[in-house]
Nucleic acid binder design. Structure first.
Lengths: 338, 338
DNA sequence: TTGTATGCGTTATCAA
DNA sequence: TTGATAACGCATACAA
């Protein structure tokens, strides 16, 4: 009562080739230790049967999952998906699959309980965390697979990280504004506790200090178009209207420009704006955005590479800082002396 | 020589609870058939040991993978990632993982050979295809898991589909332009063979025919900002410049507006523009875009649901068409009679 | 209601 | 260089 359309097993290939299943296995995973004759015979049998390996069985036997989990705060954000593309590329080369989880989707009431179930060695061989707002305790238990943090990071959580040079990026942006004569510079940040916002604030402070200027006032946003748009009201209601705004990402910058435009404030004539990330759209908005470029796909690749290395030999708290560069477009201009 | 930090197995839980492994298994997967007493004891033991099930072993035993593969043409495109978010949500509720693969990443020289390795029952329990440009032969073999197509589709490939009502969307867009008095309407399409472009072209034709007008001229783009930008040159070089353009997606529309702006052609005063998709950005560009809204997360959820249903009982070629609606913003206006 | 025994498909170990 | 055997961890058929 055999199922006639059953997919072939390693045993079937072995029988056809006249060898043992062990030999077939060797041909597939370590061909060099098999004689040329038998290898050819096995390969022929594989071809004829259309055999493909059962990865679940292999993974069980080898005590691995064959997949890496990426934790992203917002799958719908192109910023993250480009990093994912880089991660995916590196993993594929190693025969690993990419599992993706949107951390916003875990019901908030459960406070990450849903997520916890995924942070387990039986679900993934490793985890790449792109969300710095998670609780470190989620990762600090024996069952959690090796973790690499990318882009954002969680305060106090150990392990390798790969980051863009956020501080330098922010410093370059503010130095650019200072060179254009701006002195009243506002910093439109992400959530206050966000690791990106913190290190970028440091870059802002660094530039201002070097110029002998007081710290920049801040408005807190949420990295979204909408929060940038909302921030425009805050900008306009300040006692001393800033002549320039440095935004922690391009989406807030674009949202802010939209809000200011609605209030008849022109960019860059009335206010200069700098973003961060260099998303593709930033070059196509009506006032192409001056921004800080980070290579997102590359960041993803590096993160995946770190994880692979980390799996072999649990490394200390290595940290890779990737360079960024300022892209000057049209949204910034020299301060007009009134 | 036992590893003292080894993760607990079902056997360890059983010993601690004083029951057999089979009973523990039952408590975990089908608690109702276990007596209350033993269930409590087992749950206590699970708690104490910190046991979590080994999914690879369960999957091997149950002859499944526990994951669904999504094939996206471009992970970096927010349009797709929002669909993914919907897919992921539905899958999680069923305890299934989401595997993501960017089809562009398969080296083109291998003509999908890399992809083929993933289209196997040992890699995924099902596949959701979001890329209509793939070859149907990739999916037409016995080893391929059940396939559901979403959003785009592959000509001639059987199986369930969930689509937005592309034709109606395009018709609504063009009817809107016609109502505003436009007669010279251009259609900026995706790649000519793309299923979305084909059905939207049908909607365009439908509207024009009903108005007794000849078919719209077309320019072919690639769904990208850059291709929309490039198309502006084509639009301006036409012998009879169109007074309105219907674009097959928002990104091309935004790119086109950017290109026209550079040529001092204003939207909507000089030319009306309609997009498709209603990406978040379309509301924040300098001339907020009139466009066709489709509910992407919902589409993803429906696709996942179809796949789950399709797994149980291989359904015929069912097709779900999701409604769309026109969102009128500022990029379209009544034709000015010169 | 619970326990025993077996097998899912593969690979690592050992012996030949 | 190859084959026999056992084991990875779990779930299910069957027996009790």
């Amino acid at each position: 009562m055999k199922d006639p359309v059953a997919t072939p097993r390693i045993h079937d290939v072995a029988r056809l080739a006249g060898v043992s299943p062990a030999t077939v296995s060797r041909v597939l995973s370590n061909p060099s230790i098999v004689s040329e004759r038998t290898r050819a015979a096995v390969e022929k049998a594989v071809e004829e049967t259309g055999y493909t390996i059962n990865l679940t069985a292999r993974n069980l036997r080898q005590q691995q999952v064959g997949a890496v989990l990426a934790l992203v705060p917002n799958l719908a954000n192109p910023f993250f998906s480009e990093i994912l593309a880089g991660i995916s590329e590196t993993l594929r080369a190693e025969g690993l699959s990419l599992l993706v989880l949107d951390t916003r989707q875990t019901d908030p009431g459960a406070a990450g309980r849903g997520l916890q179930a995924y942070l387990n060695r039986s679900r993934a061989d490793g985890v790449i965390v792109l969300d710095g707002s998670l609780d470190r305790s989620l990762f600090e238990h024996a069952a959690c697979p090796p973790v690499v943090q990318a882009c954002e990071w969680i305060d106090g959580l150990h392990g390798p990280r790969v980051l863009a040079d956020n501080q330098t990026g922010a410093r370059l942006a503010v130095e650019h504004l200072l060179a254009l004569g701006h002195r009243r510079i506002l910093h439109l940040t992400g959530p206050a506790s966000n690791s990106l916002s913190v290190s970028r604030a440091a870059g802002v402070a660094e530039a201002l200090e070097a110029a002998g200027l007081p710290p920049a006032p801040r408005i807190e946003g949420a990295f979204s178009l909408g929060s940038g748009h909302t921030a425009s009201a805050g900008v306009l209601s300040l006692p001393e209207r800033p002549t320039a705004v440095f935004c922690d990402n391009d989406e807030m910058a674009i949202g802010l420009m939209a809000g200011l435009r609605a209030a008849k404030i022109r960019t860059p004539e009335d206010i200069s704006i700098v973003g961060f990330d260099n998303i593709e759209m930033s070059a196509y908005v009506s006032v192409p955005l001056t921004t800080v470029r980070q290579k997102r796909a590359h960041l993803g690749r590096r993160a995946a590479e770190m994880l692979l290395a980390h799996r072999e030999t649990p490394s200390p708290d290595t940290e890779i800082i990737l360079p960024v560069e300022l892209v000057i477009r049209d949204s910034t201009t020299a301060l007009r002396k009134d």
